[in-house]
């Protein structure tokens, strides 16, 4: 009885400490992350042990249909292009000057062998729509005071990339500073940490993301965005088969 009372008191105390709700934190996080359209460019560095690969890319994305176009521009992969529309994916091979439709099952594969899957790359889903959230604690991550928030897929929602996530959200600008991404089984799949937060328009955006796939040993992928703009006017026809073959 005494234990129950203490627990209840703690819960009431915590409820008062967090002046902001978990839903509000996630909503503010979404506002930073989700735009109608995006134009981006950057460098992906894949490090495994002593070896390093560098890939450059650019492209456009559109959130409402989870659509993206991406082109690799580094010499080794120059001209390789991807088009994703909903959960369909096509690849353009410059060597064959032809387009190949790829199995949907490939979306979980590491993009160009990195720790970042194709699904991760295009995650522009509004978390509040698909996840239930709760505040676990307030913690410091690096120099940032953060809310530590847990989100879990809502009952019946299956089209989520990760079933459960623990996210450290900066209290000041509502940018995700760290995330732990879990499978339904409870296994930790990946961690993400962000750096170099910049204000782009009304949004705060981390321009450097460090991803570790926990299934891989000694492997780290860093994405550095050299260009990122939200709500841009995407050139006509970018998300089409015709543009993919240009």
């Amino acid at each position: 009885m005494k234990r129950t009372t203490v627990t209840l008191m703690c819960l009431i105390l915590f409820a008062n400490i967090f002046a902001i709700t978990a839903d509000e934190i996630i909503r503010r996080l979404d506002e930073n992350n989700v735009g109608v359209t995006q134009e981006y460019g950057g460098v992906m560095t894949i490090v495994k042990g002593q070896r390093t690969l560098v890939k450059e890319f650019k492209g456009y994305a559109e959130s409402n249909e989870e659509t993206f176009f991406m082109e690799f521009t580094n010499p080794e992969d120059r001209g390789v292009k991807y088009l994703k529309r909903s959960d369909e994916l096509w690849i353009y091979f410059p060597d064959a000057d032809d387009v190949m439709k790829i199995a949907g099952s490939m979306l979980k594969q590491g993009m160009m062998g990195s720790d970042l899957s194709y699904e991760d790359m295009v995650r522009m889903e509004e978390l509040n729509k698909k996840y239930d959230s709760s505040i676990l604690a307030e913690e410091k991550f690096g120099e940032s005071e953060c809310y530590k928030v847990e989100i879990k897929a809502k009952e019946g929602v299956k089209d989520v990339t990760y079933y459960r996530e623990i996210i450290w959200v900066d209290k000041g600008n509502f940018v995700m500073r760290k995330a732990e991404l879990y499978a339904k089984s409870g296994r930790l799949l990946k961690t993400m940490e962000t750096e170099n937060v910049k204000k782009i328009g009304e949004r705060f955006v981390p321009t450097k993301i460090v991803i570790k796939d926990m299934k891989r040993k000694d492997s780290v992928t860093t994405m550095e965005f050299t260009r990122i703009e939200f709500d841009v006017k995407v050139p006509e026809g970018v998300f089409t088969m015709e543009y993919l073959q240009r």
Binding site: D95, G237, M241
Partner: peptide
Amino acid sequence: SYDRSGADAFVWDIALGELSG
């Protein structure tokens, strides 16, 4: 997966929709 020789040709691609042509 290696590529093939091309043919000397004139090709005309017309898009009928976003994923059709």
